[in-house]
């Protein structure tokens, strides 16, 4: 059997004394595209960072292509990490570098390509995300939507086969959001990558996901495909996807109205 892209077993995360996640046992298969949804502040981003090896779980094991990122090091770890792309919530672009150099950065760091080849790859990616004209501009000279595109291009520059997106459409208007997801899907189809994305927006989740997970009450619930999610029996999932104000998620903290 082929190795799963990611395998989480008995994962537990404790942050500053409070348990964020526990009993997480999940698998991401090759070619999946998983959308992680759930109420604010319940650990969606933490789950993503654990899968990307940026945060270590307090207990349990995280295997990326069969390798435990916290146990391997050096060249062997680098080999796995180079195949992972990540788009951060705030894009994490380098503002002292031009857009073109932002994409060139990982190429210069990791690959043996010469400058001419790097420039060729940079041009291809700028073209693919539709911001060729911005090559020599700096990140703070372009709009929020374009910065997202640039972030995506940089995350994909090393041609990763496993890509994490942390809330790729936060703060963008619905039309721009849809275009960003279209872009993510198109690029995914091109290199048949596995995608995991956190989102707050059900429309975007439906648009991109082959599976939906919901992080709630320290658990991760695998809600299945989009159709299965829409029909799901769990009342918390139903409330979340319909956005109903009253329901099991109505804690005094969730922002809902108490009578």
């Amino acid at each position: 059997m082929a190795l799963a892209a990611i395998n989480l077993s008995d994962v537990k995360v404790i942050f500053e004394g409070s348990t964020i996640l526990e009993n997480v046992n999940l698998t991401v298969q090759d070619g999946d595209s998983v959308a992680i949804i759930g109420p604010s502040g319940q650990g969606k981003s933490v789950l993503l960072k654990i899968m990307a090896g940026l945060v270590l779980p307090t207990e349990g094991k995280v295997l990326v292509r069969g390798e435990n990122l916290s146990e391997i090091s050096g060249a062997r770890r680098q080999k796995v990490v180079n195949k992972i792309g990540m788009l951060f919530q705030k894009n994490a672009l380098f503002d002292s570098l031009t857009c073109g150099d932002n994409i060139a950065f990982p190429l210069r760091e990791v690959t043996d390509l010469d400058e001419q080849q790097i420039q060729k790859v940079v041009a291809e990616f700028l073209e693919a995300v539709g911001i060729s004209h911005a090559k020599n501009l700096f990140p703070d000279e372009i709009s929020g939507g374009m910065q997202k595109r640039l972030g995506i291009a940089r995350a994909l520059a090393l041609n990763p086969d496993l890509i994490f997106y942390d809330d790729p459409t936060a703060g963008l208007d619905p039309i721009t959001s849809r275009k960003i997801i279209d872009l993510i899907l198109r690029l995914r189809a091109q290199n048949s990558a596995t995608v995991v994305a956190v989102t707050n927006d059900m429309n975007r989740a439906y648009q991109m996901a082959s599976r939906i997970w919901m992080v709630v009450d320290r658990q991760v619930v695998d809600a299945g495909s989009v159709e299965q999610t829409k029909q799901h029996q769990d009342l918390r999932i139903q409330q979340f996807i319909t956005g109903a104000i009253r329901g099991p998620l109505t804690a005094p903290d969730s922002g809902a109205i108490n009578d």
Partner: peptide, 15 residues
């Protein structure tokens, strides 16, 4: 409601 989840979003809008 920018950056809020759907349940909180609807609660704030209703408010």
């Amino acid at each position: 409601t920018t950056g809020l989840d759907p349940v909180t979003t609807n609660a704030i809008n209703q408010l």
